[in-house]
Amino acid sequence: MNDHRPAPAEAASASPAVNSSARRSAEKAAEEAAEVRRFWGRLGLPGLIDVHTHFMPERVLNKVWEYFDARGPLTGGLAWPISYRQREAERAAVLRRFGVRAFTAMLYPHKPGMARWLNDWAAGFARRTPDCLHTATLFPEPGVETYVREAIEAGARVFKAHVQVGAYDPADELLRPAWGVLAEARVPVVIHCGSGPAPGKHTGPGPIARVLARHPRLRLIVAHLGMPEYEDFLGLAERYREIRLDTTMAFTDFTEALTPFPRRALPRLAALGDRVLLGSDFPNIPYPYLHQLQALERLDLGEEWLRAVCHDNAAELFGPA
């Protein structure tokens, strides 16, 4: 006897309530994409370049999401819902619908022996994702200079370092030759070295200032504008020409409620307008992507500043997207 009644899961997926919810979600996503595209269209840009987006092996990213869900210590115990909890291909598609012409695969180890494996994965991701800037990472461990060289030779265009999660001193002697290789190759490094959202043993401007004293030509992109030590990291950028800052999560309602950017420092940020780059932390953000752009716009630093931050500075640094 053939029974054509739908299985419970099939019945649920076909229910009007589920279909209606999926439709509303799709409509909301389409509306946000249209608003993002209107944002950069008004500025006369061909799209956006986002230097701080996360792609990593799925099981690693799932562990990251579990950490956020559990309000782990490094999140400051904050409620942190992930706004774009989707599979890899769909996350990339979301960025493309937004008009993000180039993005990164920010990935990072939290223990020795992990970086080379992550770099191998990232090389494969870059091959199958041509609009992703080939990203690599590093950790203070024997052999770091070798695998940093290998990653650069394989085409890595940007590195990620996470002092907070890795719990290491960026001025560690084990990293010294690797920083030298990166400085010589002029490959930028996006580095989370500020003490937000929770301080670490080696976060803050002091350790990274020691690195720069040894490697003044190192192209560091300070993530999150160095929050909460904004003014200290502005000072480093004013001192070292190759220092840049990314906007990741800065000025959003979420961050301003916790670690507001000092308004007295806005003229300094405006003066560094050629070295500030758009970053978002996509997909690991507790609000819509559009809000990051709106937060930058409401600073009222002018369209020229916005054009530079949202596209032109990164295009100059990495080449046309």
Rank of each mutant, 00 (worst) to 15 (best):
G279T: 07
L317V: 02
A167S: 04
G76Q: 10
F125E: 03
Y168C: 03
V148K: 15
P262D: 09
T129M: 12
L236R: 13
R214E: 15
P177Y: 02
P112Q: 08
A250D: 09
W121N: 00
F159Q: 10
V60T: 06
W65F: 13
E66P: 03
H110N: 13
G226H: 05
F233D: 05
A321H: 12
E242I: 03
V36L: 07
E303G: 15
E173G: 12
V187Y: 08
S21V: 08
A123W: 14
G76V: 13
N2I: 09
L278P: 01
W305V: 13
P73G: 13
G124F: 00
H162W: 15
L74W: 11
A92C: 13
P286E: 01
L301I: 11
L133Q: 09
P228M: 10
T129K: 07
E184I: 04
L317K: 00
H110K: 08
R59C: 10
V51R: 00
A257V: 01
A11N: 05
E153G: 12
Y289A: 11
F251W: 10
T146D: 15
A102T: 12
E31Y: 12
V276G: 02
R5M: 07
G206E: 12
W65D: 14
R244D: 00
V276M: 02
P260Y: 09
F125R: 05
V211G: 06
R127A: 11
A237P: 11
S21L: 01
P199K: 14
M227N: 04
P267K: 06
Q292R: 05
K28M: 09
V165N: 10
G99R: 06
L218S: 01
E35R: 04
P286K: 01
R37A: 07
E27S: 08
L78D: 07
V181R: 13
P177D: 08
F103L: 15
A265V: 06
F318Y: 06
F68C: 04
R91C: 14
E32A: 08
V64F: 15
L182T: 10
R275L: 04
Q164D: 09
F159V: 11
S280L: 08
L236F: 05
S195C: 09
L43I: 02
H202N: 08
S20T: 13
F233H: 04
H4M: 15
A22V: 08
R186F: 03
Y168T: 06
E31P: 08
F282G: 14
M114Q: 10
E145M: 02
F98K: 00
R244M: 00
E153I: 04
R176I: 00
H311D: 10
F282V: 06
D131L: 12
A17T: 10
R101E: 08
V309R: 06
Q164L: 14
R186Q: 13
D69P: 00
T129F: 12
K63A: 08
Y240K: 07
I49G: 09
A161G: 11
R157W: 07
G124L: 02
E184V: 08
V190C: 06
A237Q: 04
A14G: 14
G99N: 02
A209H: 05
L293E: 03
